[in-house]
Nucleic acid binder design. Sequence first.
DNA 1: CGTCTATTTGAATGTACTCAAAAGCGGTGG
DNA 2: CCACCGCTTTTGAGTACATTCAAATAGACG
Lengths: 207, 207
Amino acid sequence: MASVFDTFEPAMYNLILKNIARHVELTAEEVADFTSILQIKKYRKRQYLVQAGDPCRYEYFINSGCVRQYHVSEEGQEHVIGFAVEDWWTSDLYGFITGQPSLTNIDALEDTEVVQFERTAYEDILLRIPKLERFFRIILQRSMITQQQRIMENISLSADDRYCKFAERYPQLEQRLPQKQIASYLGITPESLSRIRRQRMESLKKS
Amino acid sequence: MASVFDTFEPAMYNLILKNIARHVELTAEEVADFTSILQIKKYRKRQYLVQAGDPCRYEYFINSGCVRQYHVSEEGQEHVIGFAVEDWWTSDLYGFITGQPSLTNIDALEDTEVVQFERTAYEDILLRIPKLERFFRIILQRSMITQQQRIMENISLSADDRYCKFAERYPQLEQRLPQKQIASYLGITPESLSRIRRQRMESLKKS
DNA sequence: CGTCTATTTGAATGTACTCAAAAGCGGTGG
DNA sequence: CCACCGCTTTTGAGTACATTCAAATAGACG
């Protein structure tokens, strides 16, 4: 499996391998096996990674840049489900798992480089490398906890408390993302978010 | 591993084993190994399975009955995160995974019988039986899809559309649960749900 | 039967929304 | 490099939906 190209892999696959190494330890052979299913791909700002209705062939790991996942309602309104930046995973899980048409869109908010792999390759490699099965179980558990947290906050907090939580949990994202996208993620209108931010500024000035 | 008690196991563990068999096929030895970590436990209506602040030692599979998972805000308000009935899994995932104090409460809405197992036993058996690692990855994936769906509906739908979706997705639960609990799950007040239901009745009469 | 909690209904309040318009910002092409 | 165009953000006014508070009714449980 070793080849002269091995020396080039670490640069491209550095981040994803480190991400995995946080939870499971792969042997050199397993790393070679795993990286053999990976593809590097670049997406321009505003380009789709996945479109609702199409199959979602890939699972994505973000090397650089930023994407959003969102759903378009029957009335044509966009609703942001989540964001992903460097060192995060994303995909339309429903489409990726079932092979059915995707329920959501994913597009690039910035020029973005991803590491992606196909569903069939994913299924095969989980059988070959149980440690990866373990890895994905672990990150799914963590995602579930995060999602639960978000659901709790959605049903229990007011719009400005939700914004506040978001800003303190993801200060980098708060800086980096257009307000319109954050508003959509929080389930409020851009106008409301603008007002909420103004009120926060004013109340900070006082104290 | 075989013993005279084997003949008693299938009745108690019938449901959980069938649940697992939907995704992975265990050998007789693996079944014996797995069932050896299981405990049957009964909880009376209103009894806690897990209390926020305490460690969550167990993962639960519901044999019969019904439980709710909820969070109590600083102001003392209860917010229902989810329900579980026969053939469903539940636990405070955060507490169970990390060993930290639980974030949520789980209590019985009806007299309930569960199959439960401890975290340490869980971790050990995943290493012994990679098929179970696989099983839990798969059900986590499915839960994630469901959670995402719910988040989408929370941020995009009005209160009565949310109620409508809930009623058509879980008609049995809609019948079985107190309205107050459903209202909390939907993120609205019991008064609002009462009004929403009345309006639905009236609009059904017309047509 | 009596108590306690859940549900219903009403009236007043408030939070976030819609619609509309102005100001700000970034990207593109001349 | 600047001017223009389109999109985002801000601000204002009026509206709608859901909430709070309060009280009455209905149901469940001992």
